[in-house]
Design a protein around this nucleic acid. Structure first.
Lengths: 142, 142
DNA sequence: GACATATGTATCGTGTACGATTTAATCTTG
DNA sequence: CAAGATTAAATCGTACACGATACATATGTC
């Protein structure tokens, strides 16, 4: 009986390409002292600041058990601040600090660097992104 | 200055879709007591048994620091066996045990289940896989 | 308005990932 | 054939992911 080897599996293509992408980001993020998930979190906040842990989790598709330590590490580094929502004390709102906002300028060149490394033009990148997202959205969110 | 939010980033599409895919595998693998990386490792061995740690690492794109603990866990469960290569004692060869081989039959239905969950036909899945792999192979392997 | 229920975060344990280093075995070159 | 270089795994430390659970605050119902 035959089993498809990993190189032929769609899931493995996703798995290995996502890892490769993180490795591609690594040298660009190292000077900023950020990991890739930390960069994603900051990107979310650079687009829209002062959001709750839950809202960030919905955007990044992460739960509090992953997000809370991630946020705390960046808080320790002074890039953001956590604050209980006054109206609903269950919620924690995450705010960028001045250094956290300033880091956006240092990271501004990164998207272009990544795009260049893919060797693909913007149209192809956008199309591929949308096909991958279409696949994701067809898979039940648990 | 504007920063692309994560939902618009190609890297995030890969990141979140790879995670979603693992979540899709989870209920299928749980009855076998396997994690997704463990399933990948076994799939590699089901296709070609008795390979070295290095050869498995090249196929799965993982280094020994990830692979060694992964292999040891499956060895503890009695699904495989590690053995130093007689010709080159630096190398460790990984062999399936009888229970490890038997598990292939229990996992045989999984690829079809996953394919069904994507709601895509085989041609589209293959095409998307190849586009993703083409992207991966354009990114420098470190 | 007390009480069961639901919601938002946090905590804990296990299992990947991976950079850096270590150890042991093999290869190279003089 | 001995000393240094190279290679294959393993080890260590840090940082995600995530299931399960805990805990505090809100909300709904009577």
């Amino acid at each position: 009986m035959s089993t498809l080897p990993p190189p032929d599996m769609l899931c493995f293509a996703l798995y290995s390409t996502a890892h490769r992408m993180q490795q591609t980001y690594k040298p660009l993020l190292a000077p900023l002292g950020l990991t890739y998930p930390q960069y994603l979190l900051l990107s979310a906040l650079w687009s829209e600041d002062s959001r709750t842990v839950g809202a960030l989790g919905r955007e990044l598709q992460l739960e509090s058990n992953t997000l809370t330590p991630l946020i705390k590490r960046l808080e320790t580094r002074g890039l953001l601040r956590r604050e209980r929502d006054a109206a609903d004390e269950r919620q924690v709102r995450v705010h960028l600090t001045e250094p956290g906002r300033a880091l956006q300028a240092d990271a501004a060149h990164i998207p272009d660097c990544i795009a260049r490394e893919t060797g693909m033009d913007m149209d192809d990148l956008t199309r591929l992104r949308d096909e991958i997202l279409a696949l994701r959205d067809r898979l039940d969110p648990a």
